[in-house]
Amino acid sequence: MTPAGRAGRIGLYLFLVTTALFFAIPLVIVVLTALKDADEARGASIFLLPRSPDLEAFSKAWSSACIGRDCNGIGGRFWNSVVITALATSISLLLASLNGFALALWNLRRAGLVLGLLLVGAFVPYQIMIYPLVRMFAVGGIHQTLAAVVIVHVLFGLPILTLIFRNYYVGLPPELIKAARVDGAGFFQIWRLVILPLSLNVAIVAGILSVTGVWNDYLLGLIFSGQNWQPMTVSVASLSATASSGVPEQNVNMAATLLTALPPLLLYLLSGKYFVRGVTAGAVKG
């Protein structure tokens, strides 16, 4: 390697390390603080290592921290998030697969127009649709219920998920559909028996996107879920706003934050391989 090349290489690594550090610092602070006790968390510098690290803060955050007047921790809200995420993701994956199939492989009239509208849908800031949706749910009598929060997640997730499925299906050989039609299968039979079994890889990618999107969402949960189905993210925010003994318990807040952020983090770590593979496959074939 030439000296110039080596210098370039060093510069590149320097840049990468700095960038990685920049993004890692908040995470490091969260972890360090969560391992401290309340006094230490409040007093010492946020960068110091904990003197006697323990998981006290985590168990408190999970089961006894106060959110408003309710002192049962965020554990219960964890299951709310799980239910909302599971429902929203499975429904939107099924619908997105069906839509993607229709757009890619069924000779749909104006498929191009629908595709354009989907693209618009995928990039419209959803804040502008919140008020009309609130009114609609109120009229329909399901405002601030599980149904409402799942429906909005499905609605906002569908455009981008449909595009992902559609791009994958476009790469499938059209003869497959022709053969199935000659064999006498109808639209839904072809989708269920031929297309769905082929969709595992793309479903993993779309699933990861959907799970992280729904899990990390704050705004929609705040507005549409109501008290009974409040997701974890909203609880964490309320938790940090509640100071039970008058002084903020930063270690508990940090622990709650970490617990909330953990599922998507784990998901990325465990499925990064599929994710990269699926995203590039879609990109090349699209």
């Binding site: 022709k178 039609r181 000659v182 079994p197």
Partner: peptide, 21 residues
């Protein structure tokens, strides 16, 4: 008529076998 109503059998160049079956 739909292909299924025509009582035909068809073989494609790319075979078009259902890959998961």
């Amino acid at each position: 008529l739909e292909p299924s109503a025509r009582e035909i059998g068809m073989v494609f160049q790319s075979y078009a076998l259902y890959p998961t079956m």
